[in-house]
């Protein structure tokens, strides 16, 4: 019984991050507004970062900034620095993709005069129908 409880509390942070990630995924899939989709993508991304950082965390550890210069101080526990390094890179790449996505949204709004997915799809289908009709008339 005790080991079960231990297991659940030990894994609860992971599950919370996964639920957060799923809420981001749900926004991306179910909302039509493109700006909301980007917000959902950001939530998704940040929760993946949290998950990654949580793997490097050690109980009773501190930030990986050396307290005494000779390092090997056995009394101090440092958390794993490698996930931090990877996520620093990922955050910067994430903002780059976000910026590109937002620029695409501005361009889409310029062409279609809307940022709603449904309207864009409808306009595309209408265009396709018109194009097909024209081809049939010509041949």
């Amino acid at each position: 019984m005790d080991s079960n409880l231990n297991f659940i509390f030990g894994h609860l942070p992971y599950w919370l991050f996964i639920i957060l990630m799923l809420s981001g995924l749900f926004i991306v899939v179910s909302r039509g507004n493109l700006i909301k989709k980007i917000v959902g993508l950001n939530i998704f991304q940040t929760s993946v970062f949290m998950f990654y950082i949580s793997i490097g965390k050690m109980k009773g550890g501190t930030a990986p900034i050396l307290l005494d210069k000779s390092a090997n101080n056995a009394a101090v526990i440092y958390s794993n620095p490698l996930p931090h390094v990877l996520i620093l890179t990922a955050i910067v790449v994430g903002i780059a993709t976000t910026a590109l996505g937002l620029a695409l949204i501005i361009k889409i709004r310029e062409e279609y005069d809307t940022v709603e997915e449904d309207d864009i799809q409808k306009m595309d289908q209408n265009d396709l129908k018109k194009y097909n009709k024209k081809n049939v008339m010509e041949t």
């Binding site: 700006i35 965390k57 958390s79």
Partner: peptide
């Protein structure tokens, strides 16, 4: 979770730059 470098990158980039970009898009 002891990731101080990640924390202030996230605060500057996620809460700062990304919000400004989204507001500009809006």
């Amino acid at each position: 979770m002891d990731a101080v470098d990640v924390a202030f990158t996230e605060a500057a980039v996620g809460a700062g730059v990304s919000t400004v970009l989204m507001l500009a898009t809006m």
